[in-house]
């Protein structure tokens, strides 16, 4: 029981970081119709910015601010220089151009920071484990990540439903030409949305980098999972991204924790370990294929 509740928390925490990544991706796709593989690079950039600033100043808070602003700035820059030219192109060209951006970003980061991973030290206020009701010990920082994820989800919901920017975003999703005709500066709106998505990715990178490691290529596995999330949730839907992120996070954590022991009941331990581990890592892709075969437009997607 204790094991199960700890793994549920792990799944939630993992899901929240996926949500931070997926929110930006799905927003950019919903508003601009762009498929952006370089989103993982912005995640990596945020992590490096946080590691570098926190290392230089000794302040984790400054590191977080740096990650948000560096990723947002890089996002805006990339949007103006490259991404803008891709909106009218087909998906193939978008995939390719942003794949090219990954190469540039990754090798650039390797050039600046080297190949050896960087490691952050947790701020003392957030380090260590806390005792939860029910007697479960759980790392405080991971709880904080769950909190940040919920806060961002609420913030995004308020932003989209209550603010002027949100109205424009929704209008842009519905009918791009009309928004432009109404006198909204569409170029600035797009840059702002892209920078917002980038900032969230940067924040996710900084948080994950703090408990794991900051290294070149860290964005790629997360990027693929974020795509899995938005595809399951329905591309363009923030709500879908949130639900799907938690679904994927929980599936992954519980699958990894429970499958080997489940198989061990019917077969010999080492074989069960092998099959359980294999199936555990395939599980989310099976989930995604299943969802798409059942609902080709994702859980909350509009019909394509």
């Amino acid at each position: 029981m204790m094991l199960l509740s700890e793994q549920v928390l792990n799944g939630l925490q993992y899901g929240m970081t996926l949500f931070l990544m997926a929110a930006g991706l799905t927003l950019v796709f919903g508003v601009m119709g762009l498929i952006n593989l370089a989103h993982g690079s912005l995640y990596m950039l945020g992590a490096f910015a946080c590691a570098w600033v926190a290392g230089a100043t000794g302040s984790f808070a400054l590191g977080l601010i740096a990650s948000l602003s560096a990723a947002a700035a890089a996002g805006a820059l990339v949007e103006v220089v490259v991404i803008r030219r891709l909106y009218a192109r087909d998906h193939l060209e978008q995939v390719l151009a942003t794949f090219a951006l990954i190469l540039v970003f990754s090798e650039g980061a390797r050039w600046v920071f080297g190949s050896f991973p960087l490691y952050l030290t947790l701020p003392s206020a957030l380090s260590g484990a806390v005792m939860l009701p029910g007697g479960l010990q759980y790392p405080l920082f991971r709880l904080a990540i769950i909190g940040v994820g919920v806060a961002v989800a609420v913030g995004l919901w308020l932003l989209i439903s209550r603010t002027r920017l949100g109205i424009r975003i929704r209008a842009g999703e519905a009918d791009r030409e009309m928004v432009a005709a109404l006198g909204v500066d569409i170029a600035r709106l797009y840059t702002a949305v892209f920078a917002l998505g980038a900032a969230l990715a940067g924040l996710a990178g900084a948080l994950v980098g703090t408990i794991q490691s900051v290294q070149v290529g860290m964005g790629e596995p997360v990027l693929i999972l974020a795509f899995v999330v938005i595809v399951i949730g329905g591309i363009g839907s923030i709500k879908g991204a949130f639900v799907a992120a938690l679904l994927v996070g929980l599936t992954d954590a519980l699958g990894k924790a429970l499958l080997p022991s489940l198989f061990a009941r019917v077969m010999e331990v080492s074989a069960a370990n092998g099959i359980g581990t294999a199936l555990g890592s395939m599980l989310i892709y099976i989930l995604m294929a299943g969802v798409l075969i059942w609902r080709p437009q994702g859980l909350y997607g509009a019909r394509a």
């Binding site: 204790m2 792990n10 993992y14 010990q137 370990n273 581990t277």
Partner: peptide, 21 residues
Amino acid sequence: GEVYTQLGQTDYAVEIGQIRA
């Protein structure tokens, strides 16, 4: 317990939970 992780894995929350239990 005997647990195999993914090569290159960077998050060990699940395994640490299993060790704890």
